[in-house]
């Protein structure tokens, strides 16, 4: 893997984002407005002595960051597909791994920047995140790991099944978010469904976020569990992506995808 190629793709993504100035607004618009809406709800619900507002606020921050990290990686790839420039990238000698790593670097930079802004803004709504900063940062890292794994899997699916599966960039993560029980305890699921929440990448992240939102300290075991599951997804994502890319090359879909 050549660092030069990864940096070249990252620099190109930066050029694309800077060229379309409204894109910068679009990247921050959704997470920040979501934070403001639920922040106001948190303030409103305080008069009823409810912590629900803070729970929704903090969980939403993690949700937004996960979505941003995954979607930006896949959107940057989709732009290469839609503009048909992806063909030139691969035939210039950028490997499939250098390519996707570059997309992950770009999306991580964006997601971490926006999350930092959200962490600061959340203080205005009383979210006790700085009181537990090290745990929050650990959760950010774990959530990022899971989201990037999703981005790699989606990229693999698009190579394997074709450009028409681009819609996965928007919908894929939502299914995993639902089964990760964002705002509620997994015990609310029927017992036969609970095993699914156990293997979801964000279940323990959201669970820990809910605890932090109410001023508590998440159990160390929950963080370890969250890390193991996110890492498992991340480890699985790479061979899947490799296999999908090989299959796309073998079936001819790789050439079709970019013409």
């Amino acid at each position: 893997m050549k660092l030069n190629n990864i940096l070249a793709v990252v620099r190109n993504d930066t050029r694309v984002i800077r060229r379309v100035r409204w894109r910068m607004l679009e990247i921050t618009y959704f997470p920040i407005t979501t934070l403001l809406i639920w922040g106001m709800f948190a303030l409103h619900s305080r008069q009823y002595a409810l912590e629900a507002g803070l729970i929704v606020l903090v969980v939403n921050m993690f949700w937004s960051m996960c979505q941003l990290a995954q979607q930006q990686a896949n959107m940057l790839m989709m732009e290469d597909l839609w503009t048909l420039s992806i063909r030139h990238i691969f035939i210039a000698g950028v490997t499939e791994f250098e390519y996707i790593v570059a997309k992950l670097v770009s999306s991580t930079t964006i997601a971490v920047t926006v999350m930092s802004v959200m962490l600061v803004l959340a203080q205005a709504f009383g979210a006790p995140l700085f009181a537990n900063l090290s745990t929050v940062l650990a959760l950010v890292g774990i959530a990022l790991l899971g989201s990037l794994a999703m981005a790699v899997i989606i990229a693999g699916c698009v190579f394997m099944f074709g450009r028409e599966y681009s819609f996965l960039s928007w919908s894929f993560l939502h299914l995993f978010i639902f089964f990760s029980a964002p705002f509620f305890s997994p015990t609310l699921f029927p017992s036969w469904l609970r095993w699914i929440t156990e293997i979801m990448p964000f279940t323990y992240v959201f669970e820990s976020a809910r605890v932090i939102a109410t001023g508590g300290v998440p159990a160390e075991g929950a963080l370890v569990h969250a890390l193991i599951i996110a890492a498992a997804y991340f480890v699985f994502a790479w061979p899947f992506y490799w296999l999908a890319f090989r299959m796309a090359r073998r079936t001819g879909r790789l050439a079709r995808i970019a013409t």
Partner: peptide, 21 residues
């Protein structure tokens, strides 16, 4: 041949100059 619609020819060439070192 198609390249990214938002980039200029110079920026497009800068990318390939980077990749080809």
């Amino acid at each position: 041949s198609e390249f990214h619609w938002a980039l200029t020819p110079r920026q497009i060439l800068q990318f390939f100059a980077d990749v080809y070192r």
